[in-house]
Amino acid sequence: MQVMRKDVLSAADLTPSDVDAIYSLADGLRNAPVSDALRGLAVALLFEKPSTRTRVSFEVGVSQLGGIPVYLDYTTTQLSRGETVEDTARTLERYVGAIVARVNRHGTLTSMAAAAGIPVINALSDIEHPCQALSDYYTIREKIGRLKGVVLAFIGDSTNVFNSLALLGAILGVEVRIASPREYGPSRWILDKAKELGGDVLVYDDPSEAVKGADVVYTDVLVSMGQESEREARLRAFLPRYRVTPELMSKTGKRSIFMHCLPAHRGEEVSDSVMDSEQSVVFEQAGNRLHVQKALLVRLAEEGYLQPRRP
């Protein structure tokens, strides 16, 4: 019986047993990074948005597993000339074992997954970033020694990263909090979905209250890709109150860790002194993307999903 779903479009597509299996594989892949788990298989990396960590970690990861990463920039494919997402997916499934897609609209992913018989993995959309959250909780597990009962306080805009952290946190027994201005708080859909998954996102206006007792303080950029026209309004709404500083970190009341999905806009959402502190694990987070994403691909291969459709 196949355990995992074919597609990973949302953090909610994962179960606790999926996560346990992926983390166990990631532990092994850290110690033995090179294998032939994907030997003979190509993986398409279809990117509509810029990327550093996601692209490099997937390209290197597929290569280390013996597979062939095929990077496709949207602007150099027929998608840029009007070919449908569905037709592209039906074509790619005849060449590759999986599609890793980084897109502007989440609907692009759902259309692609419905058309393709191979896995479609969300490498970022406007709604979620499940690979980031999966890797982040792996880092928290490594640093704190557990996940159940951990308190994660997110400071800032309710981004796609926050959405995936909230949903996966609900699945894993993590208490997720967010402090943001009311107009930039989490959507009702995320709050309801987290509750459906067994969690409860706690929403605060005051960052100092949100971080009390937190094991993890997390933030993200205040102006995400595609929001550049809103920059001035967003910075006025968030700063300086929603900046992570040493003073805010001290209000946790414990030796908390600081996390950021990167890239960081130093001096805006976080101060240099926090980014470069001993509490910061931001670059270990980035490093763990490689191990966890490799483990995700191996797990999907073990379930028999990574097979191109034969003519």
Rank of each mutant, 00 (worst) to 15 (best):
residue 222 L to D: 08
residue 87 D to F: 07
residue 297 L to N: 06
residue 164 S to G: 08
residue 130 P to W: 02
residue 124 L to H: 02
residue 309 R to K: 13
residue 15 T to G: 00
residue 213 G to C: 10
residue 144 I to V: 12
residue 191 L to M: 14
residue 297 L to R: 00
residue 261 C to S: 06
residue 5 R to H: 10
residue 203 V to K: 04
residue 51 S to C: 09
residue 11 A to P: 07
residue 41 L to I: 15
residue 219 T to L: 06
residue 172 L to H: 00
residue 122 N to G: 11
residue 172 L to M: 15
residue 144 I to D: 06
residue 213 G to E: 07
residue 243 R to W: 10
residue 247 E to A: 13
residue 188 R to Y: 09
residue 302 E to N: 07
residue 253 G to Q: 04
residue 177 R to H: 06
residue 146 R to G: 04
residue 261 C to Y: 00
residue 121 I to C: 11
residue 287 G to D: 14
residue 203 V to D: 03
residue 21 A to H: 05
residue 188 R to G: 07
residue 203 V to I: 13
residue 261 C to M: 03
residue 210 A to V: 11
residue 201 V to T: 05
residue 305 Y to S: 08
residue 88 T to A: 13
residue 176 V to S: 10
residue 234 R to L: 11
residue 220 D to Y: 03
residue 300 L to W: 08
residue 178 I to T: 02
residue 9 L to I: 13
residue 19 V to R: 01
residue 183 E to Q: 06
residue 286 A to S: 12
residue 151 V to E: 09
residue 239 L to F: 07
residue 12 A to I: 07
residue 276 D to C: 07
residue 65 L to Y: 03
residue 257 I to W: 02
residue 132 Q to F: 04
residue 282 V to G: 09
residue 150 V to K: 03
residue 82 G to K: 09
residue 77 T to C: 14
residue 5 R to F: 06
residue 8 V to I: 15
residue 189 W to M: 13
residue 251 K to C: 11
residue 33 P to N: 01
residue 242 Y to V: 11
residue 14 L to K: 03
residue 287 G to T: 06
residue 2 Q to F: 12
residue 183 E to H: 03
residue 215 D to P: 05
residue 14 L to T: 00
residue 181 P to H: 01
residue 207 P to N: 07
residue 241 R to E: 15
residue 25 L to M: 05
residue 101 A to K: 11
residue 6 K to R: 15
residue 119 P to I: 12
residue 74 Y to A: 14
residue 258 F to S: 09
residue 105 R to L: 15
